[in-house]
Design a protein around this nucleic acid. Structure first.
Length: 575
RNA sequence: CGGGGUGUAGCGCAGGCCGGUAGCGCACUUGGUUUGGGACCAAGGUGUCGUAGGUUCGAAUCCUAUCACCCCGACCA
């Protein structure tokens, strides 16, 4: 490919909208271009990266006996009404009507459609198991799209759906997909981690997310430093300590004045105790219907995802101080679980950490007062203990002895789900089993954010000069710089190298512009092809061209006459 | 959706308080000099100042409304 034909337009300055590295670099490298908030044009260079990722995905999907199809992006509302998601899904779902005023939606995911596809065709257990996938543009009207391809409204996703006669078959496919995902991200040259996760609104029970490790990630993952336990922090559990024993000399709770101290930090320092020895109590509003009180050890944070799961709720939010004070008649800043006036809340839930506490401080349920000498095992009367706290670095691993949890930031690029009968039931996806009786299919679904994978690769592989693409997903393997387009000899040599590489199946981008060398070097670094070949007057006079790897400083000089073969050998060895 | 901010040339920005010929850098075009890490000189083109209304002799500037975009938060297979 010749640069002049490749539609590569790099930017020297960063458009002001970009914040994250991948967003900035992909814009500057001329890979993407914004059309609207969270909606991007994929320019030729960016599209090549997308296509390479897609090719790897297709290859691995086919190894799992998954077959590709393509479903429409515009979906009749009817199907979603059938599954119940038409009402359940919030404003993230873009709804539209056609000229006859019939309701449609832009697909944010395709469970309903695939179920419809399969139920129209599959009747017998003999057709199962079955796995179908597509690579399609999705639309989710995100509240706040940001970070370029990382969190767009329109985005390309690979989604696969599997159908099974029984749980064992689903299990088998689930782990086959799990392995395929590991292979895909490995082949893309990414450092990633598969983690246990919360299954969220899509439903189902067991799920793993695949995260590319990068400091800029939006998710936090916790993993054990000695075994292979890893989980999204939303889900991560720690080994819970045993309930504390009550010391024989334990004295009775005592009310102390703590004027104006309403935060854990203030109360702890005022009473000269560690925040670990205080009990924090928070009020949550659940599904806009009722309230609960939640206690955690003072230094911990309530995990709202866990809380939601524990309450089987859709949403939990912290109400304003005014509501807590005026409507619930509670002492904001001085709430505590001992003698808690629970009349206005449905129940009190305590984190397991509280049970393990010894002598503690908690609110006295009276403005400006706290209690000291509280022993939760003795003084707290409520019964419900749950794991509702966010784990912290150093917590003991829930799986193994002696392991400690560590934290990293991750970018979620893929997820595998066991859906079970969540869609097959409301949509009557049945088959005849070998007993000749109708039975519900059980399903799995498996997604990969293709654009997000590209962005994650940039987050993980770049330097001050630009992108450093992993070889397998680079837009071109080789940036071939012809420094002196005015010289017949240099130009001819450049072209012959270009042709020889292309003939051997190597992607090569020949910079044939009449630009100064500095510009070409800068652009080559920015675009980030793994290999660079420089053909210039200076080298040609000595009979050499230069070969450089994007991630290394050093250059190799290669005889110009045998350079195509030499380079083929080097690249063949590496990729 | 709550809080904050920005819309002026393709990109990055100044101008705005204090109304009076719309500017700078990069990019682009032409000519020349340069030529191995984003060159230099000269000349040139480029705008409904986000949109609509209002105040005024006169609005990028003041007022009102509105739209878009960005950041923080909430939200998110």
């Amino acid at each position: 490919m010749y640069w002049k034909n490749a539609f590569v337009h790099t930017l020297r300055e960063v458009p002001s909208e970009a914040e994250t590295i991948s967003h900035k670099l992909m814009l500057r490298a001329g890979m993407i271009q914004k059309l609207s908030a969270g909606i991007y044009n994929y320019l030729p260079l960016g599209l090549r990266v997308i296509r390479k990722i897609e090719a790897i995905i297709r290859d691995e999907m086919e190894k799992c006996n998954a077959t590709e199809l393509l479903m429409p992006m515009v979906i009749p509302a009817e199907l979603w009404q059938e599954s119940g998601r038409w009402d359940y899904y919030g404003p993230e779902l873009l709804r539209l009507t056609d000229r006859k005023n019939n309701p449609f939606l832009l697909g944010p995911t395709h469970e309903e459609v695939i179920v419809d596809v399969v139920r129209k065709s599959v009747r017998s257990y003999r057709d199962l198991p079955l796995c179908l996938f597509q690579i399609q543009t999705k639309f989710r009207d995100e509240v706040r799209p940001r970070y370029g391809l990382m969190r767009g409204r329109e985005f390309i996703m690979k989604d696969a759906y599997s159908f099974h006669a029984d749980q064992e078959s689903l299990e088998e496919m689930y782990w086959a997909m799990y392995k395929a995902y590991a292979a895909i991200f490995g082949r893309c040259g990414l450092e990633f981690r598969a983690v246990e996760a919360d299954s969220g609104t899509i439903g189902g029970s067991v799920t793993h997310e695949f995260h590319v490790l990068a400091d800029s990630g939006e998710d936090t993952i916790a993993f054990c430093d000695s075994c292979d336990y890893a989980a999204n922090v939303e889900k991560a559990a720690a080994r819970q300590p045993l309930p504390a024993a009550l010391p024989a000399d334990a004295s009775m709770p005592q009310e102390v004045a703590t004027p104006g101290r309403t935060s854990i930090e203030d109360v702890a320092s005022f009473l000269a105790v560690n925040p670990r020895d205080t009990v924090k109590m928070l009020i949550y509003e659940v599904d806009s219907e009722y309230y609960v009180a939640v206690c955690v050890r003072g230094d911990l944070v309530v995990n709202e995802v866990k809380l939601r799961t524990v309450l089987d709720a859709k949403a939990v939010t912290i109400p304003s101080d005014e509501i807590v004070r005026d409507k619930l008649k509670l002492a904001v800043g001085s709430m505590g679980p001992r003698n808690f006036p629970a009349g206005t809340v449905r129940e009190v839930i305590a984190d397991l950490s509280v049970r393990a506490m010894g002598k503690s401080v908690c609110g006295a349920n009276r403005d400006g007062y706290h209690l000291t000498n509280v022993y939760p095992v003795r003084d707290l009367t409520f019964k419900r203990f749950e794991d509702v706290a966010v784990v912290v670095e150093g917590d003991p691993c829930p799986r193994c002895d002696g392991g400690r949890l560590k934290m990293r930031k991750g970018i979620e690029v893929g997820q595998v789900f066991k859906l079970g009968e969540k869609y097959s039931k409301p949509m009557s996806l049945t088959f005849l089993n070998d007993q000749d009786s109708p039975s519900l299919m059980t399903m799995g679904c498996y997604g990969i954010g293709v654009g997000r994978t590209a962005a994650a690769a940039v987050e993980q592989h770049h330097d001050d000069d630009g992108i450093i693409w992993p070889a397998a997903i680079a837009p071109y393997s080789v940036a071939l710089l012809c420094l002196d387009t005015g010289s017949e000899e240099v130009y001819r040599l450049s072209k012959s190298i270009h042709d020889a590489l292309e003939k051997n199946g190597i992607d090569v981008l020949l910079d044939d512009r009449t630009e100064r060398p500095g510009v070409k070097f800068k652009d080559a670094d920015l675009i980030g092809c793994p290999f660079r070949i420089t053909v210039g007057l200076r080298g040609v006079k000595e009979g050499v061209v230069e070969f450089k790897r994007r991630h290394e400083k050093s250059l190799e000089k290669i005889s110009k006459d045998s350079c195509a073969e030499t380079i083929l050998k080097i690249i063949g060895r590496q990729s």
